[in-house]
């Protein structure tokens, strides 16, 4: 199904990113790395389903040129923290309580994963999380890691 994979080639230049005041996300520090940005919330059931997968990605690509950032969009950070504690997760979390980052990346469904190549370009956007698509999600990362 083509529906889950949409290719976004949107320019997310600094000049369009002046959204609402929000948590910061300076991706420049990850230049040269493949970045997997996962937008999630504590109230989103498929997000919960995706966490074990994200953990797996994180550990599987640990030695590679790969960074996974879980961007939480809960309005109330304590809910996110409660969720993470229950999930026993130690993924790197970016708190985006006002949705500024989500707006920048034009997030249209929860969860949404944005896969950014080593060149800093958004290469894949996974809208939603479908367990049967996990091999595809992973293939996208491998492809970008091997692109160099």
């Amino acid at each position: 199904m083509a529906l889950v994979t949409v290719i976004a080639m949107v320019s997310v230049g600094g000049h369009v990113a002046h959204a609402a005041p929000s948590a910061a996300l300076d991706l420049s520090q990850y230049h040269g790395k493949v970045v997997y940005l996962d937008f999630w919330a504590s109230w989103c059931a498929p997000c919960k389903l995706s966490f074990p997968f994200l953990e797996k990605l994180q550990s599987y690509y640990a030695g590679r040129n790969f960074v996974l950032l879980a961007v939480n969009v809960d309005h109330d950070r304590t809910k996110a923290d409660a969720f993470l504690r229950e999930a026993g997760s130690n993924l790197p979390i970016v708190y985006d309580t006002t949705g500024g980052i989500a707006r920048t990346f034009n997030v249209k469904a929860m969860p949404t994963s944005v896969v950014i190549g080593a060149d800093g370009r958004v290469r894949y956007v996974h809208s939603g999380f479908f367990p049967d698509q996990m091999p595809l999600y992973e293939a996208h990362i491998s492809e970008l890691l091997n692109a160099k």
């Binding site: 937008f39 919330a41 109230w43 989103c44 059931a45 969009v73 809960d74 309005h75 985006d96 949705g99 989500a102 707006r103 997030v107 249209k108 469904a109 929860m110 949404t112």
Partner: peptide
């Protein structure tokens, strides 16, 4: 609302 503002709808 935006996709990330469906928290109340999720209740």
């Amino acid at each position: 609302p935006a996709a990330w503002d469906h928290d109340l709808m999720a209740r």
